[in-house]
């Protein structure tokens, strides 16, 4: 039953993705991308990843939609339509996809408790993390304690991205358009 819900939601996701690729009105694309993020947040929720669902809902449907709309306001809301049909990229995509689908045939089935991923460190975390850290939410314990270096790196990446945006757009705009002719 749970898997049925996931299947229906994933199908919605696929339909939304097709619409995102096909549409030329970028405002509609961005709004659809918000819907896409919200749908994936619901899927994460059904798949027991509550923390991830939380983040995806706030980030995907909230902040990244606002940022993309802001970019469209600064650039242009219309994509230049290219009428020519491109067979080679389509072929590349289909072949790559077929190869990947062939690769999935050896993958463990959905929800299989004997899959390799569930045999390695995860049981140890689930068993010992609450005792060793005093925190029942294993995701928080692993994030902050067992993989503390990793998270420090991630926070630094966010810091760097913030600094990068400030450097790129923070300084007042120069009249670059005029200067270009004289160069």
């Amino acid at each position: 039953m749970e898997h049925l819900i996931v299947i229906v939601l994933l199908s919605f996701l696929a339909i939304t993705a097709v619409a995102i690729v096909m549409l030329h009105d970028l405002v509609a694309v961005v709004m659809l991308f918000g819907i896409f993020s919200l749908l994936s947040a619901v899927i994460f929720l059904v798949l027991d990843a509550v923390d991830v669902a939380f983040t995806e809902a706030a980030v995907g449907a909230g902040i990244s939609t606002v940022l993309m709309l802001g970019t469209l306001a600064l650039t242009t809301p219309k994509e230049k339509t290219s009428p020519r049909f491109a067979p080679i990229p389509l072929l590349v995509v289909i072949i790559t996809g077929a190869a990947l689908v062939y690769g999935t045939l050896d993958m463990p089935r959905y929800g299989d408790p004997t899959a390799a991923i569930h045999q390695h460190v995860a049981p140890r975390y689930l068993e010992r993390a609450p005792r060793e850290t005093g925190i029942p939410n294993v995701v928080t314990a692993v994030l902050a304690s067992y993989r503390g270096y990793d998270t420090l790196g991630e926070v630094t990446v966010i810091f760097t991205a913030g600094v990068g945006v400030m450097l790129l757009l923070g300084s007042p705009r120069r009249q670059t358009k005029r200067k270009r002719g004289k160069r």
Binding site: A49, V52, V59, A122, Y125, V139, R147
Partner: peptide
């Protein structure tokens, strides 16, 4: 469910939006 992928993806989402913002900039 296995908590380890949740940890990896949780941070990846937030890093993803930060890098997307950089790309948009």
């Amino acid at each position: 469910s296995n908590p380890l992928p949740h940890v990896l993806i949780l941070t990846a989402i937030v890093v993803g939006v930060a890098t997307t913002a950089l790309g948009l900039a």
